[in-house]
Amino acid sequence: MSPLHLCLLLSTGLFCIGLAGALSRSNAILVLLGIELMLNAANLNFIAFWRYGPAPSAGAGVVFVIFTIAVAAAEAAVGLALVIALHRHRRNLRLPEATRLKG
């Protein structure tokens, strides 16, 4: 197995951990953190393909990761602000009970 395979499998593992966490935990903060982990797994893929890809000097992978990190930071800030707003309205963070937005 080439190192690229290993890197991709590592990112798959990280993605699945994040997905399982986001799906199973009821606390809104942990769901957000699970989503962060999934984003991190995507970043890991970019870096792996950049490192082992055909044209590493282009730097597109690295630039993309920088953008993703910026977006993820924005997402975390907004998400955690949402968490705080949720807490203020409902006094808890249990997502299964937060169903007011249903159609």
Partner: peptide
């Protein structure tokens, strides 16, 4: 139940 379903789903994706 939710945790079980979550692990199953994640395993399938993986």
């Amino acid at each position: 139940l939710r945790a079980g379903a979550a692990v199953l789903t994640a395993a399938a994706v993986g």
